[in-house]
């Protein structure tokens, strides 16, 4: 088992922490925080898989998710804030 495989396993464990935090619902902004954490972690994991398999296409998908997905979450944060204000 190579080092990158082990690193991927460790990343899955790191992904479980914000997942647990999202399940333990207290405040919607805490859930939002864990969502942003999960999405950036998932994108970095996709990049690592692309390097692990030496696959250029997977890397492109990872970068697109990283850049566009975060923009979408900013939008979602504003919608949630509007919901709260009304």
């Amino acid at each position: 088992m190579s080092f990158l495989n082990l690193a991927l396993m460790a990343m899955v464990v790191a992904l479980l922490i914000p997942l647990y935090e999202a399940w333990r619902d207290e405040d919607i902004w805490q859930t939002m925080l864990s969502l942003s954490s999960i999405s950036s972690k998932a994108a970095v994991m996709i990049l690592l898989v692309s390097v692990l398999r030496d696959d250029w296409m997977i890397g492109v998908v990872g970068v697109i998710i990283l850049s566009v997905g975060n923009a979408g979450f900013m939008l979602l944060a504003h919608i949630l804030k509007r919901l709260g204000d009304a």
Binding site: D27, I28, W29, M32, L33, S36, S40, A43, L47, W56, G59, V60, G62, V63, L66, S67, N70, A71, F73, M74, A77, H78, L80, K81, L83, G84, D85
Partner: peptide, 30 residues
Amino acid sequence: PLLLLAILSLTLWNTMLGYVLAYCSSSGLI
């Protein structure tokens, strides 16, 4: 090029998302 793009978008977006989340969570219903 791919990984450099990843680093750049990560720094920019994460900083901006952090700012937006802080701004949104400090006022409102929640």
